[in-house]
Design a binder for these strands. Structure first.
Lengths: 166, 166
DNA sequence: TATTGTTATACTCTATAACTATA
DNA sequence: TATAGTTATAGAGTATAACAATA
């Protein structure tokens, strides 16, 4: 179908899988399942497709300034600031003046924000668990490790336990 | 860090990797590399982040109506129609009246559109190849197969060679 | 003068509503 | 009446520009 080469056929399969994951239709479906689009409950007030990367990113990198967070999640400072305001209004995030630099504001999750992120992480992990075939434990473990490595090489972002959810 | 369970730690790693892939910052970077944001060349006229899913989806599922294509890629008919118009103006796509139903329009890639999609596919595969560690061939092959299966389970979309790029 | 955070404005993409033609 | 396609309008999200405060 294409020219051959070292591992070209495997690369085609991997590229197809990555493409499917990133495809808008599947991405949105995943977000909906994660953020509570399935039933009447589930949804957390203040957290939607726009604010989720902000609260998740803040949980991943810890308390930081607006600019640092914006860089990490690939948004403009102004957008991160507005989403942070929404999360603050929902009681999931708090702003503190930075002691070092009075220009800066440190963003920090509230205890309720921490609980919210933890719940979303667990839900995403459950979705993954449900999608994993019935492999022997070693095979699952190797797959997880290998996927983390490939994604790391592809994005430059480490993918480790308890970090880097979407 | 979280409650344990069958394969919970592995699920955390996998969830982290998937989250990283879907994260806007990394997704956009991948799209930019694919669509020619790296140098002066590379970019194909008429193909950008908005139209790429349309032309790629059309290549994946073959000639079809606007509605069918829109469903496949997760867009509204109206949006797919407008993007198709842009691709048509760029000479990558052609509209034909459907012989069966005069209400329908069949979308089909032009030869230039086919070449364009093939070039983008190859470029994505090259990105994947560059991100693959120096594994023994069997390990790469198994990883590709396993990833395809997990993504299929997670999205309901098959990921096979030559299909389903982002 | 440069930088942080924020607010005001404009742009892009997508979805809903309205319209035409055909079934 | 219902459906396919398109066009017109509105909504959500993001980026650029402008401002105030601090370095």
């Amino acid at each position: 179908m294409s020219q051959d080469g070292p591992g070209r056929a495997d690369a085609q399969v991997i590229a197809g899988a990555i493409g499917a994951l990133v495809l808008r239709a599947n991405r949105m479906h995943l977000y909906d399942e994660l953020l509570g689009g399935h039933g009447g409950d589930g949804g957390v007030a203040g957290v939607d497709r726009a604010t989720y990367p902000v609260i998740s990113g803040l949980a991943r990198i810890g308390p930081c300034t607006t600019s640092e967070l914006a860089d990490q999640i690939g948004l403009d400072r102004t957008v991160a600031s507005r989403h942070a305001t929404r999360l603050q209004q929902a009681g999931l995030l708090a702003r503190q003046p930075s002691p070092d630099d009075l220009r800066s504001t440190v963003l920090r999750l509230t205890p309720e924000g921490e609980r919210c992120v933890q719940a979303l992480r667990t839900r995403l992990e459950d979705l993954v668990l449900a999608a994993l075939p019935d492999w022997p434990p070693e095979r699952t473990h190797r797959f997880a490790h290998d996927l983390g490595q490939v994604v790391h090489n592809l994005t430059g972002v480490a993918a480790e336990p308890g970090h880097d959810h979407p």
